[in-house]
Design a protein around this nucleic acid. Structure first.
Lengths: 335, 335
DNA sequence: ATGAAAGCGCTAACAG
DNA sequence: CTGTTAGCGCTTTCAT
């Protein structure tokens, strides 16, 4: 392994000069810097993290905690992870992947051992067991999702409450008077996953505001679940003409299920979804949707975390405003 | 930060004794070890990786290179990544996530800087641009997938060639005389992805051996692609009664497409797939399949890598034998 | 603008 | 079985 002293000898300077030339922490004459850079290049020198002194010992690693619980849509999570890695690399950081296998402790462990400088926590629940740890140890962190009491923590998320409202507003504007929300699997709500709950709140609030008849139904995945929920909805809510889906893998099966029941989309039933654009756009009938911008959330989270690490002030919560894209699945009632 | 000297003082021993008590690299009396452990616990000591000496300076981190190219099935990759993390933790290692964004260099970078001790390389192609790097720098590594010239490298994979043969054997045994392989998207073959190619070889070899009429068709994803390929197949191969699918997201659409053409499964057409069991089992018609054991591959890869790091000899290539599970989608011809 | 030297926290000879 | 000591490769005072 080629070390800093090798470079120093080759460049005819002292080790400290090499260090400074590389870090730029104090001015170095152009001539010297050039010689150092040449030596670095010729020798293929790479700083060996293992030797850094006391202060400023940063590992340049961010830990990403992905729970991988049941009911979360895998492609969304993955897309997110990829965008985190990409953004981190752009800031000269690497990403350590943590799953929830070892419980909450993993977060503390990687930061305590200096393996990672900070953590990004995904799939935050309203009462998340990981939060006390983050607070007590004051680990530098950014949450994806907003917990019940976000005080002092940095959070990023789509404004799911507004997203729920936006869908209902859209349906109401089209004249629909009875709407239903087909949500994530029941376990997601039992876990009190923040974003799922917020969407329900927004949905309900907007439905009440517009004085619509409304219903909320969690729903598992798969064709059978879709058929069951569709059947139940048309039975229990005969006037139903507007549906909001918040369950990625269910979008297609649900379209099929409603059509099997003799309802045409958007003729008899308007459908909107809250999901990543690709899912909505590639459905059998392209679905009007509010996009879940996983890539942007990942990028934002990394930006915030890097700023935080550099000591800059960061906002407590960043809620991205929802944007609705109209596609073929919605139409005025009775059109 | 509490350091090893703090623990030593508290336990009334020397720093090196603490070090040894913790690493177990030389015998320590029970009494002393207990006092050390108590001190560690009370003070909440955690080794600070930054100070480790020259030799044995292991970061206990494995890098996982996931290309995330188009045409690879995201859930399979993710499942794999999760199993790698889990297995790594069981061996007291963490996992660094690398995407292909920064090119091949990322692999060298993380090992050179000591960030990671070794790398796991996924989605290996027959001529993979990352291999020269692995060889020249002799980075400790395990490949998922077997390249054209695996000499000296450690590889793990499902035996895709045998998997292709197994599917055809099964169909032939059921009396089918004309079979088709619906494969991955064309770009996968253009990239010369190893496992895809091998499956084709096995499929073709077995079909020839059984003197079957056969055809191989790459295929993109989505309902339209499924419809197109199904239509083309029945037109070009009217005697077709057996199909092998090697394209996870296409399984369900393909079933639909054939049925839309008036072919019942397994009445008129027998279908087998090479895919993870959950995909096959949860299809609309459960599909007879050869399982792609992503979780086991991940675990194996980690085991091999850890052994390798410990200096133990490891086999060059580990090819897991395929196992076929019969489900509802295959039946004797003309049954 | 540059060097010399003193650590950083830890491990591993070297000594008992 | 345990303590002393000399590093590891790097950063960062001090000096000049």
């Amino acid at each position: 392994m080629v070390k800093i002293t090798d470079v120093a000898r080759r460049a005819g300077v002292s080790p400290s000069t090499v260090s400074y030339a590389l870090s730029g922490k104090r001015p170095i004459s152009d001539a010297t810097r050039l010689r150092v850079q040449a030596a670095v290049h010729e020798l293929g020198y790479r700083a060996d993290g293992g030797g850094r002194g006391p202060a400023g010992r940063r590992s340049k690693v961010l830990a990403l905690a992905v729970p991988m619980r049941s009911g979360v849509h895998v492609p969304v999570v993955t897309q997110f992870a990829v965008s985190v890695v990409t953004a981190a690399r752009a800031h000269d950081h690497d990403v350590l992947l943590l799953t929830q296998g070892e419980g909450e402790e993993g977060l503390g462990r990687v930061v305590d051992t200096g393996l990672a400088d900070a953590v990004i926590v995904m799939d935050v629940q309203l009462q998340d067991p990981r939060l006390p740890l983050l607070r007590s140890r004051s680990l530098p962190s950014v949450l994806i999702g907003v917990p019940a009491e976000p005080d002092g923590l940095t959070c990023v998320d789509l404004d799911f409450r507004a997203a729920g409202e936006l869908c209902v507003d859209h349906l109401a504007r089209l004249g629909h008077r009875a709407v239903a929300l087909v949500g994530s699997p029941p376990e997601v709500y039992v876990r009190r996953t923040a974003f799922a709950r917020r969407l329900v709140e927004g949905f309900t609030a907007a439905a009440d505001r517009h004085r619509l008849t409304s219903a909320v139904r969690p729903c598992g995945t798969g064709r059978e679940a879709a058929r069951a929920i569709a059947g139940r909805l048309v039975r229990e809510l005969p006037s139903l003409t507007g549906v909001v889906v918040h369950n990625e893998p269910l979008v297609d099966p649900l379209i099929d299920a409603f059509e099997e029941l003799g309802l045409s989309i958007p003729g008899d039933l308007s459908l909107t979804a809250v999901c990543p654009s690709p899912v909505a756009a590639s459905a059998r009938i392209p679905v009007t949707s509010v996009a879940v911008p996983s890539a942007e959330l990942g990028t934002r989270a990394v930006h915030l975390l890097v700023r935080k690490l550099s000591g800059a002030p960061v906002p407590g919560a960043t809620l991205l405003p929802p944007r609705l894209t109209e596609r073929a699945s919605t139409a005025p009632r009775g059109a």
